[in-house]
Amino acid sequence: MDHWEPRIMAFLCAWCSYAAADLAGINRIQYPPNIRPIRVPCSARVSPKFILSAFMHGSDGVWVSG
């Protein structure tokens, strides 16, 4: 498990977190590549079903940000 990296599914609100992730890019802030962002119109869009479904499809962590 030494090199184990969790696979993270991120639901990012288009208005804030997704824009912030873009900004992190503009600032070239480096972070680990094990995150797969999905842009949602609002964190309110994230149904519990999405979260469970992400886990079901093998994500180790789910991040809802908004």
Partner: peptide
């Protein structure tokens, strides 16, 4: 979004960025 949220933030890890 393969620039702001990928190439720009994983510059030191081209392989993982490509994945």
């Amino acid at each position: 979004n393969i620039r702001n949220q990928c190439s720009w933030v994983h510059a030191d890890n081209p392989e993982a960025a490509t994945d």
